[in-house]
């Protein structure tokens, strides 16, 4: 029952924001805004889905922003310089993401190091690799990749948006309906208890990191498709947006509790806030202060309700 209350609160917050921005700026209620938000969220939604799976185990991955830059760099070089097709480039980007993600996971789990520290190291490594891959240059890809992020069939939504919705749905089913999901939550709730009851606590955690990496690889392609180019600086600070979305959605930083769909609501809230602040013409300092306040307020509300 409480799951639904949580969910309605998130919807209420989102609705309140939309009304508020709508009152401040007439143009906010438009297909243009809807398109802008729908266009911007696929990458964040994919990474937030993966991040939820990592965070329910009590882990975290700070390297996703840099990894988004690196996978985008790989996509850019493959498509712009080596003229690979989109399908192969997607596979390569997802594979690179999965390899890096599972490396972070394996090093952290097998060597018993906090994932916070290992992924902080990977944040630097992946950004360095992004600059190396592109020789620090922005790669223009153009029409070959743009269709993925462009609205289709006269709608405001893009293929990337549809795919990200499917991934969110699949992530939710995995977390709440499948054995692996319950397994991840059990590890996050009480690792010793999970161990005593005979569950493997290593492999599922590495799997969660690998999946997050793969989803980040796909997100990188979506990001490039939206911009038509690959920027080796892409994704700087992106990890904070993803973690904020997951936490706003009520996933505990300590693990043991989380929901992919609620993380997606968190993504919608962050993206709407961002679009709204731009449209009302907020200055950079105001944007940062307001975004920070909303994140803290959302988590505070969540904590109070649980007491």
């Amino acid at each position: 029952m409480r799951r639904w209350t949580d969910f309605f609160i998130l919807i209420a917050v989102l609705a309140a924001m939309i009304v508020l921005f709508g009152l401040m700026r007439d143009s906010f209620f438009s297909m243009g805004t809807l398109g802008t938000v729908a266009n911007r969220i696929p990458a964040l939604a994919l990474v937030a889905t993966g991040m939820t799976l990592v965070m329910v185990t009590g882990g975290i991955d700070l390297s996703v922003g840099s990894l988004l830059g690196f996978c985008g760099a790989v996509t850019g070089v493959l498509m712009a310089d080596l003229h690979w097709g989109l399908a192969l480039a997607v596979l390569a980007s997802v594979a690179v993401g999965a390899v890096i993600g599972s490396t972070t996971g394996a090093v952290s789990v097998k060597l018993r190091l906090p994932s916070f520290i290992v992924s902080l190291g990977m944040l630097e490594i992946a950004r360095g690799l992004a600059f190396l891959t592109t020789n620090s240059q922005t790669k223009y890809i153009g029409a070959d990749i743009e269709a993925l992020g462009a609205p289709f069939g006269g709608l405001v939504i893009s293929p990337a948006f549809v795919i990200s919705l499917l991934v969110v749905a699949a992530g939710q089913v995995m977390l709440s309906q499948m054995a692996i999901g319950r397994h991840l939550i059990a590890i996050g709730a009480n690792r010793e208890a999970a161990l005593v009851s005979g569950l493997s606590v290593d492999r599922p955690r590495i799997f969660a990191h690998a999946l997050l990496g793969a989803l980040t690889g796909l997100a990188a392609v979506f990001n490039c498709s939206r911009l038509g180019s690959a920027d080796p600086n892409a994704g700087t600070g992106f990890e904070l947006g993803a973690i904020a979305a997951v936490v706003v959605g009520g996933t505990s930083l300590m693990g043991g509790r989380g929901s992919v769909v609620k993380s997606f609501m968190g993504v919608l809230i962050i993206a709407t806030l961002e679009a709204g602040l731009i449209q009302v013409g907020a200055t950079e300092p105001v944007k940062r202060v307001v975004t920070g306040l909303v994140i803290v307020a959302a988590v505070l509300a969540d904590t109070w309700r649980r007491k």
């Binding site: 143009s27 990001n223 920027d231 892409a234 961002e274 679009a275 731009i278 449209q279």
Partner: peptide
Amino acid sequence: WEMEKANGVAAGILAANP
């Protein structure tokens, strides 16, 4: 100075100022 951030800002400006 960033492509991605500018993309978001541009989209917002275009929506707010047709």
